[in-house]
Design a protein around this nucleic acid. Structure first.
Lengths: 242, 242
DNA sequence: AGCAAGTGTCTGGTCATACCAGACTAGCGA
DNA sequence: TCGCTAGTCTGGTATGACCAGACACTTGCT
């Protein structure tokens, strides 16, 4: 790296390196601002601005009164970046997000079928039941959340942490698209439940190919919903929420 | 959102909203810090810290002497987050990244076969030739970059901007894995060239399924490389570079 | 002795002010 | 007319003071 025009940048990079190299362990508290002043030999301003950058990146968790700690960079931050990337890249459609989701979830279904543990399978079974109930009863007030959880659990069952992270990041986009897709539409609701069942069964039977096909089919059907194009692409954001 | 314990947070969120809602257009200059002081009614510290957070997020480009501008959030920032996420997310392996890449690129190959324009096809042809040359001549000094460009062009040919963005984000991570995979290994080099040719042909023939299969095959083979586990997971980082 | 309130001192949050330094621009002088 | 220069925009850094949340230790009451 070497070059670092401003001292804030320098400090920022050094701090980032501290995190990456594990000197500042994730979850652990980092020195207080007053200590960092000595440690880096710059003013508190520079320290705080560098810390702010890291906070913006989602690396640090800063709370008044408590020592600043290294946060596990989770999907939330990633989820904040995606909307920004999209909003700056011109008008995006839900179809585009769905395409990515299709790519991801075809893989997760397939991998989940191979790697899922019995505990995960049990959890999927429960979620499936909950989903069925939610669909029948409260007309999808919870169904949406359960649906997402079902898909996320499949992603987790891949044993690859990247999948649930990515999926969650995409979720903010597709959430109300899903909602619109089955709301007040018993046929779609039915199909959604059936699709989930098929996916579940394929994963249960460790049939990777079938799981992929079922997932793909499910998503392709979901993709056919009608959305008014004037709806906003994003909702509230707070990458630094604590 | 509503809640915003600190004034820095408040300002940050308002600014973020300004970006998202397009009040602050991407590429345009935002008001000077002194103006923002009046506009938000807080001290310069709060303003600058909020700006720092946005800079950390990769939303703003701040340069000494020039007005701060809204940057197009590119894959670079995302590329910085992935290592952080992985390094804090426990056992991170290249295989995991490759799995995601496999998911993404299976889809891009398939979509590219359907949607590629003749210009894009031409460009792919050129890249293919360059790749072949690079492999034969300079022993992959450039081959790596060309390889990436080839894959990116395929991603672009999907007409879905999300794909190239995601792929680029993943690329920084897998790049030297790729390098290691064909370095000083004529057999692997040969196979890489052949694989690219097969993918190209499938896309040329608009054969989506074949494109997918060829891509999958290509990546799965690449995935079998041997990496020494003691290599660093990341290199220099500077999300706020200008 | 045990519990509760109180207080000191950590931590981060905010501010005003002054000054430094890069970048642009208008205006002066050759 | 051209080129240099100085003014004044912009962000960058520093100091020092003070506010406010969190926590631990001490004190004092029951």
């Amino acid at each position: 790296m070497v070059e670092a025009s401003t001292s804030t940048q320098t400090v920022f990079q050094k701090m980032l390196l501290n995190v990456q190299s594990g000197i500042w362990e994730t979850g652990a508290k980092i020195p207080s601002e007053r200590s960092l002043i000595d440690q880096f030999g710059v003013s508190r301003i520079a320290i705080r601005e560098a810390l702010s950058m890291l906070r913006g990146l989602g690396v640090l968790e800063i709370n008044h009164g408590q020592r600043t700690r290294v946060k596990t960079v989770d999907a939330v931050t990633l989820g904040h970046l995606l909307p920004l990337m999209l909003s700056s890249g011109g008008q995006q459609t839900f179809d585009q997000v769905f395409e990515v989701r299709l790519a991801i979830e075809s893989q997760t279904a397939s991998q989940a079928a191979r790697r899922r543990t019995s505990e995960q399978l049990e959890r999927l079974k429960e979620l499936l039941a909950s989903f069925r109930d939610a669909m029948r009863n409260d007309g999808n007030t919870n169904a949406q959340a359960i649906d997402l959880e079902f898909h996320l659990e499949i992603a987790r069952a891949t044993a690859n942490p990247l999948f649930p992270v990515l999926l969650e990041a995409l979720a903010g986009f597709v959430s109300f698209a899903q909602k619109a897709s089955c709301q007040n539409d018993s046929e779609r609701s039915q199909r959604a439940v059936l699709a989930h069942e098929s996916i579940f069964e394929a994963i249960r039977d460790a049939d990777a190919d079938r799981a992929r096909v079922e997932m793909e089919s499910h998503l392709r059907y979901s993709m056919t919903r009608k959305i008014r194009p004037d709806e906003p692409l994003f909702d509230d954001s707070d990458p630094s929420a604590h």
